[in-house]
């Protein structure tokens, strides 16, 4: 079987398209590359959707934690505390358990026991809490004169937030937020590993790497392949976040500009 055929058969296996049965014998490097790569679709799906949706909640949490309103502040603090303070491993366990009991009472919750919705929800809360804390830290680090300058120009309320505080917060938080994004994508490998069951052998990259390691009894091929995929994914992420970082810093004088650029470079 040529490698091209393998790719057409198994390239989308992780989402249930193509061959129904996984290969059983004669595992080639091509099989491993294709199936593990196919599993990466899940990692990318979890990572991207959780990051995008978590971003919104994170901003709200950061503002909530900095708010004067007592209950708002406490609620944000506790949310961040619980999700940042416990291992994701344990969060998955509890979430699955909770979703199961919810499902038994209300059919509305039934998608949550499958990974695409349930694990996504946990990852969403998780990244929102981490990013929320980063944004909160950045919020507190905004130079006072920036705000004072805005006040002097008569920019207040929503406009002050949208035009001054929010962009500055993002700019300050960006390097740490880049790291959080990388961690989030790495964390997606835990979904099928410990948290949620895999249906009909549709799993993420680690699931297939594990499958091959089990079938060939040789961990030294599939896991390095998985590692390679993740290194590529990480490099792409860093590239994208670097572009965004340049956008955020566009208005700054050249000298400061290049300094931050250099900081990003070190991750590469």
């Amino acid at each position: 079987m040529s490698c091209f055929e393998i790719i057409t058969d198994y390239g989308l296996r992780s989402i249930g398209l193509g061959e129904r049965l996984l290969p059983k014998t004669d595992f080639t490097i091509c099989h491993q590359l294709t199936l593990i790569g196919s599993g990466m679709l899940w990692n990318i799906y979890f990572g991207t959707v959780a990051l995008a949706s978590g971003f919104v909640l994170a901003t709200l949490l950061a503002l909530g934690k900095a708010a004067n309103h007592f209950y708002l502040r406490k609620a944000s603090e506790w949310f961040i505390f619980v999700f940042r303070g416990s291992p994701l491993f344990i969060q998955f366990f509890f979430a699955y358990f909770l979703f199961l009991s919810l499902k038994q009472n209300f059919t509305f919750f039934s998608p949550l026991t499958s990974a695409w919705a349930g694990a996504l929800f946990v990852l969403f809360c998780n990244t929102a809490a981490y990013s929320g804390e980063i944004f909160y830290g950045a919020l507190r680090a905004i130079p006072k004169n920036d705000i004072e300058a805005a006040d002097a120009y008569g920019i207040t309320g929503w406009a002050r937030f949208r035009r001054i505080i929010w962009p500055t917060m993002l700019r300050l938080a960006w390097p740490a937020y880049t790291n959080e994004a990388i961690f989030l994508f790495h964390a997606t490998t835990l979904v099928f590993f410990s948290g949620f069951p895999a249906w009909q052998q549709r799993g993420d990259a680690l699931y297939y790497a594990n499958y091959f390691a089990d079938k060939t009894f040789n961990p030294f091929i599939p896991y390095p392949i998985l590692a390679g995929y993740f290194i590529i994914l990480t490099l792409i992420l860093i590239g994208l976040f670097g572009v965004a970082n340049r956008k955020l810093n566009n208005h700054l004088p050249k000298e400061q500009h290049s300094k931050i650029k250099f900081k990003i470079k070190l991750i590469r």
Partner: peptide
């Protein structure tokens, strides 16, 4: 349901049933 990486999991994958694997 079957434990992943067992002969039972491999068996069900080939029958008409829907396999769901747990650790």
């Amino acid at each position: 349901a079957a434990q992943s990486n067992t002969i039972q999991a491999a068996y069900i994958a080939e029958t008409g049933a829907t396999l769901v694997e747990f650790a």
